[in-house]
Design a protein around this nucleic acid. Sequence first.
DNA 1: TTGAAAGCGTTACCAC
DNA 2: GTGGTAACGCTTTCAA
Lengths: 360, 360
Amino acid sequence: MVLEPTIYDIAHRAGVGIATVSRVLNGASGVAEATRRSVQKAMTDLGFRPNRAARRLAVRGPNRGRVAAIMPFFSTNFYFAVCKPLAQGLSAADMDLVLYDVTNRDSKIRLLDRIAAERSYEGILVCSMGIGPERQSQFARLGIPVVCIDYPLQGLPSVTVDNREGAAMAAAAMRDGGSRRLSLVTGPPALAFRHREEGFARIAGPDSPVARAEAITREAGRAAAAALLDGHPQVDGIVTVNDVLAVGVLEELRARGRRVPEDVQVTGFDDQPLMDVIGLSTVRQPMLALGEWAARAIQSLIESPRTPVPSAELSLSFIARATTRARATTQPAPATAGKISRPRLKAQLASKPVGKKGGE
Amino acid sequence: MVLEPTIYDIAHRAGVGIATVSRVLNGASGVAEATRRSVQKAMTDLGFRPNRAARRLAVRGPNRGRVAAIMPFFSTNFYFAVCKPLAQGLSAADMDLVLYDVTNRDSKIRLLDRIAAERSYEGILVCSMGIGPERQSQFARLGIPVVCIDYPLQGLPSVTVDNREGAAMAAAAMRDGGSRRLSLVTGPPALAFRHREEGFARIAGPDSPVARAEAITREAGRAAAAALLDGHPQVDGIVTVNDVLAVGVLEELRARGRRVPEDVQVTGFDDQPLMDVIGLSTVRQPMLALGEWAARAIQSLIESPRTPVPSAELSLSFIARATTRARATTQPAPATAGKISRPRLKAQLASKPVGKKGGE
DNA sequence: TTGAAAGCGTTACCAC
DNA sequence: GTGGTAACGCTTTCAA
């Protein structure tokens, strides 16, 4: 890589002093028009870009805390929701949040390499992905704290949820609602999804059919449901690892004329906004709490690096709405129960948490 | 403000050289344990925080482009959608995107002051808000380009949409669908909303009832609808400046037993995700194009500051779904039209653009 | 194991 | 108007 030109190069080329270059750079008055032009020409000729670090050093710019957040930001509303408290917490602590949308391993590695080389952040937040032990010790050596969100990692403070338990709750609810042939629609490879698959299998049994959506989109969810139903027409309950996928599943079901929840029950995961108006039964994630926890953790580690932060696991709750049936009770239900207590999807606007430990 | 301690202070206090302090700082090997401890003590005593700029300057860290994006990021899904192409465009151009969630005038001013003082960004993106002429010339003097999104501003390149036209399209669709008493639910003061109010008034007449929601939330939308309907029970069409507000309006309507679209039609604005499954008729914003345009514009201005970028206005389109009625035609409709061509909200999963100029 | 000193690329002050 | 020249706070040889 060729060296970037500096004001010395510009000054040299334009035949002036560096002070003059600096003046032109800052639009200061008191520079002859001819001089200014020749300096500017030299700058564009050489493709000059002022060095921000040098500039800040010279102006004694404030040394604001900066934390980098690394995650597949735009892949799901989940990240948006987590980032909100994160951004607010950090800005309250007078720190900047730099968001890196990272969707694959390679770009993650490149980014972490760069961050380590630049030493440009006071803290790093890694969401839904892990970092290797060498990387961990690299950052430890550099004194840059790392906090994990939604990903359990040995040796690093992390906030997680019990994804296995969450999926198990969803599957159990379906079984309680009378589904006998449970199935799963999962997403692209990811640890959280794998755990949800395990939780599902714990309740539904290891041989229950599973379809994998190629992406976290409605279209992919619908396609996965189609494949699933083609292969296993008798399926009467579909657990899903994500709300958006679940919406796709609902679309496919509707297209096939299968009634929900009468013929087949469906659950999502996350409880993202609007799921209540859609009436989707789902597993609620405490995104607000996840973000708040992470903001506090990274702050604490930046301020007092020697005080360790213990990891935390927040609880999930199952939200029963219109895509699942109520528990089959031993006492006979009133004759009209099917009509009265099971509103059609559309009418279901309220929600009733059926929590496990009951805290967000 | 008191000066931050530097490694010189630490070295002095610990009775060592600055090189040693640096070594401790970087976890380098080859420092006597006793020395390391005394240095660390000095650091915590003085509350030392390494200066990032100096560090980067010394290690000749790469001078990556950084652009700051300033917007009420978490207030609406709109910003999320706009930021996606923005982030992708910038990262493709090897620049970092620093997101600032700014919701009020004061914090905006503070932030811009700081940014100007730090000179820490190569470009600035301002979304849904304006900046004064003094501020503009300040940044012009500093040579930092500014691009506006969703806000027309004299003298600055901006991408906008015709909000008046958008709201007018929505109101016109309702009128065509037979509504005679149109009304508007708007949001907190904002230029875009004001323009939509104007566009609405152009079609509905200046005396049509207007209710203002206190925030862009479903609850606020519902409350505004309640106030509106209490004061004007005969209202048979509610134009809304935002999808989320519209969802709140639908909830209130349902609670009052008013049928949609038979008794009252409703439209939203934005066409955010899931609005199709909810069946909301709305005005689609080209968020993708807005973000892409902004990314290109700021890139261009950073690379060739002397080449002006002309502002652009992208077009909006009205998406008719289940919350509005089809146009009343002169030829009599088939008897079953009400049932067949007007599916209930829930069933409406497809959408049919009814564009104006037809481009996203 | 430690320290002195030379950069790193700007800005800003002070002469000319 | 313009050019020298100290800072700015850190990393990194090079000697000791």
